[in-house]
Amino acid sequence: MEKCRRLNAPFLEKEASNLRAGDEILLSGVIYTARDAAHKRMSEALARNEKLKVDLSGAVIFYAGPAPARPGEPMGSIGPTTSYRMDPYTLLLLELGVKGMIGKGERSEDVVSSMKKNGAVYLGATGGIAALLARTIVASRVLDYEDLGPEALRELEVRDMPLVVLIDSLGNSMYREGPAKYGKNGK
């Protein structure tokens, strides 16, 4: 990770626009965890015109449901879940100011179009290195939906979380470029 750049969350469209697919970054600052059930709750709350407990302006959402923390640890093992399941809820969140998403796997065309329109980026954490990622979490608290257990909406303070830009705000995708270069099947 010698060419890593540092990024602080929350961030604005201008900072997001400097990132390119394939860039390795170290993310610090405040981010939020929300996955399947929390996205459903947030979208239902927004449909009822309720205010969320998370400030979406410039927010980075990590699609993650951590393992429970041991006593004295801020966090248990944590890593990305597959992002496509959040696609149906993501368009609205991007319209409301979300600038970064952390997950793994492809996104829908609709999500990529909205990322381009709203100047947002999709960041990748490697799946299945959850013990290592846990050590980049400095503090954690549940913001809402505590009854969802691992799926609760959490605020995390992170330091130097290693990520890769998977899809940038121009719509370039690392998932297209990498496999195209190493595949031997001519597709």
């Binding site: 449901g65 248990g76 879940t81 959850a130 013990a131 290592l132 270069k181």
Partner: peptide
Amino acid sequence: QNPVAKSVFRTILENRRVASEGKFPLCQD
């Protein structure tokens, strides 16, 4: 062959080492 993917392998093996210390499970899932 891909240096980026090779470094993913290294990270996975390092994760496995940290998990084996018994404090953090291999994966959150």
